[in-house]
Design a protein around this nucleic acid. Structure first.
Lengths: 275, 275
DNA sequence: GCAGCGCTGTATCGAATGTTACGATTTTTG
DNA sequence: CAAAAATCGTAACATTCGATACAGCGCTGC
């Protein structure tokens, strides 16, 4: 199985330091076009420095950047040669009037999970599984409901969950409660909100673990994030679709619940009594 | 439309000298990968010299080779974005990090849309398209974020949108504003919340059009609803999945936006000014 | 709390690349 | 058939790019 730079990445992503992981995310987010550009452009898109990009490709096993690009090009050539590269693919639309946005949404979800490794999910779940670490959630204009949705579930299976709502000043005041062991889940898709980025930066400086849910173009917050989930959002509609991120959120909730099974079962039992 | 380097080539191929035509053929033969490599490699593959390649791209209208490559890359990025870009990437089954809940979720979405006719969607969109009819949204414990998500979008494309939040007493007071022409969108999956059912009943008696988003077992509110969307929620997890309803909500938002295109465009324009 | 390690960014250097000038050769035209 | 125009390749040039050394920093382990 010599094939696939993408596979190489998702295999080794877990063993990478933070900066190189950002490079990996940037590459996978818009695969593989970014990798065909210059190191400088790549580094800028990933929010890291040029040497980090080079170390990243070195870790993938390439001797130099040119060799890495050649691999991408070969892969691309093979891909475009195959018959699938035609414009109007016969959609396997089983039946049904399913509006034009549904199939793309399904594909977005699949594609998103293709770029999220099991290990990554496990890591995020592990982060959230520590009941002593507080969990804060926040989202942007359209994504805050996702944060709420996740918060609604998390609150049930573990303590110390807080959704940051309302005025921006409210968030800021909460910064004081955030410490090194705590986790901040941020939902931010374009147009990225500056206020969120500012908040994320401050939280980052306090040592908070940031988990970012964003789109494939990566919110600037990715710079500060320990984990980044890049969901596909493109659909034939004036709006971006957050469905992929929604499903990722549900997945995390499910996995976390399984992991905390015994603890949360007891917790839920107690809650029932309190009604 | 600013389309296609390939088209540019076949347009001007006739007016090209022999050497440049060889370059054109080489590029089209393995489009566009050759063009992403260096001038030297390109020239060698085409059997001409480097300057000829440069003259070739100049004739296509590009200022320099970099600009030419950028055009190819953009084209490639656009192409890989939407259609099934799977060939080179890890195959769905070969490498399935996708946790056990994802496939069922996808199937839930498909199944849900199998039971929602285009006509039904059109009817609901028509209901929501009347700007004079107020739209109220409300949801249950876990589904209220869906209501919020939808409200966040609706607020932008039309006036008179209100998400009913907070204390139950707040909702009740809003009943007085609801009339025969108005629409109430309710999200309610099991366990169905009694307070929602009560509220729905009262609204129903005031003649409000109720649109219900529920699960396949149908909330009792279905009795009062003019439209019912029954989303599949079953996943191998302790929780139910609201992903299918989420996608339906996004679909409605998209369709409604399209329908209100002219109106909402003007509205959005005005909103931008107010920033 | 301190020392050691690993990671990352800045600055610099060398190399490879794109670009241009010029002359050889072919093609076109009177 | 001759002269002029155009095309193309060789070679030198300048620029940009990739690569490397080094120092600052945070983190980990003792």
């Amino acid at each position: 199985m010599k094939n696939g730079v993408a596979e190489l990445i998702s295999d080794r992503m877990d063993t990478m330091p933070a900066g190189e992981r950002r490079a990996a995310h940037a590459l996978i987010a818009s695969y593989p076009v970014i990798g065909l550009k210059t190191v400088a452009e790549f580094s800028q898109a990933a929010g890291v420095s040029s040497p980090t990009i080079l170390r990243f490709v070195a870790r993938l096993g390439f001797q130099n950047y040119a060799e890495f690009q050649a691999a991408l090009q070969d892969e691309l050539a093979a891909q475009l040669q195959s018959p699938a590269s035609r414009a109007g693919l016969p959609q396997p639309s089983s039946r049904g009037p399913a509006p034009a946005t549904v199939e793309p949404t399904l594909e977005n979800i699949r594609e998103t999970f293709r770029h999220v490794s099991e290990r990554q999910i496990a890591d995020m779940v592990a982060l959230l599984a520590n009941p002593k670490a507080a969990v804060f959630l926040i989202g942007g204009r359209f994504t805050d409901p996702l944060a709420r949705y996740m918060a609604a579930h998390l609150t049930i299976i573990r303590p110390n969950v807080l959704h940051l709502a309302g005025q921006e000043s409210n968030w800021r005041d909460r910064l004081i409660d955030m410490g090194k062991r705590d986790v901040l889940l941020i939902f931010d898709i374009r147009r990225y909100q500056e206020s969120l980025a500012l908040f994320a930066e401050k939280a980052h400086h306090r040592g908070v673990h940031i988990v970012l849910f964003t789109d494939q173009w990566l919110s600037p917050i990715a710079r500060f994030a320990r984990h980044v989930v890049a969901g596909r959002t493109a659909v034939p509609s004036p709006w971006d679709s957050s469905a992929a991120l929604f499903v990722v959120a549900e997945t995390l909730i499910g996995e976390l619940t399984r992991r905390l099974e015994t603890d949360s079962a007891r917790r839920i039992g107690e809650m029932e009594k309190l009604r």
